[in-house]
């Protein structure tokens, strides 16, 4: 018999739903019973979308922030399930399974930590940066987007640490991809944490390897259960196929078999 429950099924109320740009919203949620579970940066939730008729499974969504008894989820509206989440209104109820996955190793990190995010992949870096700052590390954010309006939550990142930006069209920060930012050539980091599209993460992993910097990436393989039962979301690692939902979503790049 276990007396301490780690994972929970929990109802939340939507406190607010703010549109960040044409594709993304920020949902602020409050647990109905007022009890927020302990959450580590980089962990995720499985959300039951209100569009139940069109989406069968829960949707895995990374945790953007935990603040003032509220849980923040950044949702990119791409399919029926995420569009229905984007249409939620203040006071609506939503059911989550949480907290899931391992998270970034922020608790052990010291020194200057580079947090690299692309697009909606920046979501877990806000909470990670906050935790790093709280424990005396120096978070530096490197955020990439196609264009200026895609650099989400910029003001919030700036409250926590230095923010470096690249946009593909050069409308904000340096022009190009995150791996082309001048800071990568000029500075040395103690650790790198990355979340974003796989090609971007692989490019950053390549930089980390070449500069001999410890590096963690957050994967988003397609999942069904989120609990390590169905074995659908596996990633090839040095230990064989492992579930991203329980052994990840965060992996040190030396655990992966990426050709970098």
């Amino acid at each position: 018999m276990r007396f301490f429950k780690m994972k929970q099924i929990k109802d939340f109320t939507v406190v607010s739903n703010n549109r960040l740009d044409e594709r993304n919203v920020l949902l602020r949620l409050s647990p109905i019973d007022g009890q927020m579970p302990a959450i580590k940066p980089g962990q995720f939730v499985q959300v039951q979308s209100p569009a139940k008729d069109n989406t069968f499974l829960r949707l895995p969504i990374s945790i953007n922030n935990v603040e003032d008894g509220q849980l923040w989820l950044m949702v990119q509206m791409i399919g029926d399930g995420t569009k229905a989440l984007g249409a939620l209104r203040e006071g609506d109820r939503i059911n989550l399974v949480l907290p899931l996955g391992n998270g970034f190793s922020t608790d052990k990190a010291k020194g200057k930590i580079l947090l690299v995010g692309g697009g909606v992949g920046i979501a877990p870096l806000l909470y990670a940066g906050k935790k790093l700052k709280d424990q005396g590390a120096e978070p530096v954010f490197l955020l990439g987007a196609r264009t200026a309006s895609g650099v989400l939550e910029r003001d919030l990142f700036e409250q926590i640490g230095r923010v470096l930006i690249t946009t593909e069209d050069g409308s904000l920060g340096e022009r190009g991809f995150v791996t082309q930012h001048s800071a990568l050539q000029q500075e040395k980091f103690d650790k790198i944490m990355v979340c974003g599209p796989k090609p971007m993460m692989m490019a950053v992993a390549r930089y980390a390897k070449s500069s001999d910097t410890d590096c963690e990436v957050s994967l988003e393989n397609m999942m069904a259960c989120g609990l390590g039962a169905c074995l659908c979301c596996v990633e090839k690692t040095v230990k064989g196929n492992v579930c991203v939902c329980t052994e990840g979503p965060v992996f040190n790049i030396n655990q992966l078999t990426w050709q970098i």
């Binding site: 069109n54 069968f56 393989n221 397609m222 069904a224 659908c232 979301c233 090839k236």
Partner: peptide
């Protein structure tokens, strides 16, 4: 991988 595809119901 990929080992899973969501379908109608």
């Amino acid at each position: 991988y990929p080992r899973m595809a969501e379908t109608a119901s």
